Amino acid sequence: MKRENKKSNALFEGVKEFKEKDFVIHQEIFKNLEKNQNPHTLFIGCSDSRVVPNLITKSLPGELFIIRNVANLVPFFRKDLDAHLATSSAIEYAVNVLEVENIIVCGHSNCGGCRALYASESKLKNLPMTKKWLELAQPVKALVKEKIKTEKTETCKRDELTAQLNVIEQMKHLLTFPYIKERLDKGKLNILGWYYVIETGEVFNYSPEKQIFERIE
């Protein structure tokens, strides 16, 4: 089923340009990746079209194993096989088969998924799956409300605070996976939390020791 429009035509032209230019530049890399991949990092990011993991990190093909979903969420580990399989199976494969050395959970500014945590029932009426998925971030909503109340954080910074605390929460979710905890304890795995600011290009790394996000520079 093909319905041509200017945007789809641009995509086809992009494929041609990739083959003629970018592929040629990295042809040796793609040749080496023909039968195997050996990414060093699992990047868990938001589905938002403005977040481009390879561009942000200047990574080449084969370096990142990428999971993207609404609000960069990580399900809790569960032994039963009936929930959140798309994300959980990708985490399982990245850690147990590819044996990645790093896991990055990357949130970002102006995240619609995080903002939807505060949406009314009427606004989520036609988004039942999204509403269900965002239950994984519900603890963050309570943390933000408490922080605004006790630390007198400006309400206008709610969305930024939500996105950042969500990153920290999802890092905790990763530790519920026994094989992740085991590799972390053995020093074979590193877990990082990032916050990407779309309008400035800045990326902030979470410091567990200082409990703050520090700009990478």
Rank of each mutant, 00 (worst) to 15 (best):
residue 3 R to A: 05
residue 4 E to G: 06
residue 6 K to A: 13
residue 6 K to D: 15
residue 6 K to W: 01
residue 8 S to F: 12
residue 15 V to D: 04
residue 19 K to C: 04
residue 19 K to M: 09
residue 19 K to L: 02
residue 22 D to A: 04
residue 24 V to Q: 14
residue 25 I to K: 11
residue 26 H to L: 14
residue 36 N to Y: 01
residue 36 N to K: 08
residue 36 N to P: 05
residue 38 N to L: 06
residue 39 P to C: 07
residue 51 V to Q: 00
residue 55 L to D: 05
residue 55 L to V: 08
residue 64 L to H: 08
residue 66 I to V: 15
residue 67 I to N: 02
residue 69 N to G: 11
residue 73 L to P: 04
residue 77 F to G: 12
residue 79 K to Q: 14
residue 81 L to A: 13
residue 83 A to C: 03
residue 88 S to K: 11
residue 89 S to V: 00
residue 89 S to I: 05
residue 93 Y to R: 09
residue 97 V to D: 15
residue 99 E to Q: 15
residue 99 E to D: 13
residue 107 G to S: 06
residue 109 S to A: 04
residue 111 C to H: 08
residue 114 C to H: 09
residue 119 A to R: 03
residue 122 S to D: 14
residue 123 K to P: 03
residue 126 N to E: 13
residue 126 N to G: 00
residue 129 M to F: 12
residue 135 E to Y: 02
residue 137 A to T: 11
residue 155 T to V: 11
residue 159 D to T: 05
residue 159 D to I: 00
residue 165 L to A: 01
residue 172 K to Q: 13
residue 175 L to A: 03
residue 179 Y to L: 10
residue 181 K to H: 13
residue 182 E to L: 15
residue 184 L to Q: 09
residue 184 L to C: 10
residue 185 D to F: 02
residue 194 W to D: 08
residue 198 I to R: 09
residue 204 F to I: 10
residue 209 E to T: 14
residue 210 K to C: 06
residue 213 F to G: 03
